[in-house]
């Protein structure tokens, strides 16, 4: 059930990308899709009532390995979030450039004003 909520988040972002006419709104919808994918990856690695993947010196390694959540998706999501910020800044830079050139965020207006 939780996985389908995740799918819902991705689909909402997709709907926003398809429907929106403002460039910045499309960027924001892509951000929502991004969030949905990150959440999905983390949910796959979750263990019911699991501990963070940080070794606790109080318990043995075998006990720790049996109670910890999966560290691999966490590491991948960590890099993906920071890449998302860089890509977001690049997309916003394009939007700002387009606004400066055409005076609008609207895609159809920009197409009309081209040339």
């Amino acid at each position: 059930m939780i996985f389908s909520l995740c799918l819902l988040l991705i689909l909402i972002g997709l709907y926003g990308v398809v429907v929106s006419r403002q460039t910045l709104k499309i960027v924001i919808s892509l951000l929502i899709m991004n969030h949905g994918v990150h959440l999905l990856l983390l949910l796959i690695g979750y263990r019911e009532a699991g501990n963070p993947p940080i070794v606790d010196p109080a318990i043995s390694i075998a006990e720790f390995a049996a109670s910890s959540v999966d560290p691999l998706p966490q590491a991948l999501v960590l890099t993906a979030i920071v890449i998302g910020l860089g890509v977001l800044a690049l997309m916003v830079a394009f939007c700002v450039r387009l606004y400066e050139r055409y005076g609008t965020f609207d895609v159809t207006e920009i197409r009309r004003l081209r040339g």
Partner: peptide
């Protein structure tokens, strides 16, 4: 690396 890249991007966007 991350601190300077993000600050650089932010400064470029606001200075615009």
């Amino acid at each position: 690396k991350v601190a300077s890249a993000i600050f650089l991007v932010f400064t470029l966007l606001t200075a615009f």
